[in-house]
Design a protein around this nucleic acid. Structure first.
Lengths: 218, 218
DNA sequence: GATTAGATGTTGACATGGTCAACATTCAAC
DNA sequence: GTTGAATGTTGACCATGTCAACATCTAATC
């Protein structure tokens, strides 16, 4: 049950999960690499990806504006790091949600709910992960690998249900793309505030039900 | 069958749909307001929304960098205009697709296909429309009205199918949100190039089929 | 046709932001 | 302690959005 990756691991930091500023009087920060990601995430949550500036991140961490370049090639690399961390936590979340009820149909549904819940809980990560802010050059292999792992979790669950005779026998990859599209659609609308007041959790539960049984009148 | 709004009306321009540059020697452009939108769309298609700069748009139109401000309050207003035009064409496209086969189930399916086709054909518009690039302040009433009209086209189609006893009797607005989420998910994955080589049209047709009948084994 | 007000477009300037080059400080291994 | 690598700083440059002041054109009026 222990997760492999937590986005904000419980640490000695304040309850607000504020990234560590450099201790006063010290020249080195200590863990600037990590603090940069955390502060970037915070900023994105507050002001959106477009509102993210390296200078404000540096200032908030009490560090000069170019200190970042010792750890990331450029702004895109920082965003890629955010995305990579996001995919790692995302994959873990999906896998855990599926495994918790012992897999099977309950696990499948739990995974769907966890998908949207992750997006709503970590909109900054989700937006960077899927918002197309990453240049092709910034899609480092590690990032792609993490993304593949997330997708594999979904495909695996589908294959399991098919073996149990609970899902139609279409190509698992095809089914997975469809399930992903549905989840992605709900997630995007939810974090873009376009659900017209509907509750994201309930919206996704409805989507899962309709996903399984369809909307045609029986 | 005549559409109320075409995104690129057939005009005297070249086949490349290049927006008109200012005629050499002339002080006024003639229709800068419209040319700005077209050039913005072109740029977004080529370089993404983040790659859009007012200066390059102006330069491409052979106009000074601040000429834009005689027609739009700021960059956001230009994007809002792009979105508004997009929603107008989008609503028309959906309505036409539904009406062409005489409505009913065939119209519903056609509308779904048209949804994704629009996104794939006009990714720049679609991204601006749904990508969250519009500030709340830029959501002018006209834009919201056009968006509502698009959504109403979908809801209307659903109500029709319900009356014909072809769809489950859930709240039409709820059903519409679900159908929209599915379509939006496929569309976003398609224009983000995340369909792993799958054909968007076929992907959407599959989604429609599963949307109607579900993925559970019969 | 001359006048003139409003529409349209231009130039110069400024603030913000990403990034590079050169330099400073600290840490860690010897 | 010495020293090379890691880490951080300062100054500068360029691109971009935007404002203020000015220039030019169009169209309506006399």
């Amino acid at each position: 049950m222990a997760s492999r990756a937590r986005i904000s691991p419980p640490s000695t930091r304040s309850a607000k999960a504020r990234p560590a500023r450099r201790a006063p009087g010290r020249y080195h920060h200590g863990d600037l690499r990590r603090a940069l990601i955390e502060e970037a995430v915070l900023t994105i949550q507050q002001q959106g990806v477009e509102g993210l500036t390296l200078r404000s991140v540096a200032e908030r961490l009490g560090v000069s504006r170019t200190a970042l370049y010792r750890h990331y090639r450029d702004k895109g690399a920082l965003l890629a790091a955010v995305a990579r961390e996001g995919f790692r936590a995302f994959g873990d979340t999906l896998a855990e949600a599926f495994a918790a009820p012992g897999g099977g149909p309950a696990g499948f549904q739990a995974m769907g709910r966890a998908y949207v819940r992750f997006a709503v809980t970590h909109p900054a990560h989700y937006r960077v992960m899927f918002g197309g802010f990453l240049d092709a050059c910034n899609r480092d292999p590690e990032l792609v690998a993490e993304a593949e792992r997330s997708f594999a979790a979904l495909t695996g669950a589908i294959v399991g249900l098919q073996r149990a005779g609970l899902l139609c026998p279409d190509d698992p990859a095809r089914l997975a793309r469809h399930v992903w599209a549905v989840s992605h659609g709900v997630a995007m609308l939810a974090i873009d505030g376009q659900l017209r007041g509907a509750d994201p959790d309930e919206e996704m539960q409805y989507a899962i039900d309709r996903l399984l049984t369809g909307i045609r009148k029986m």
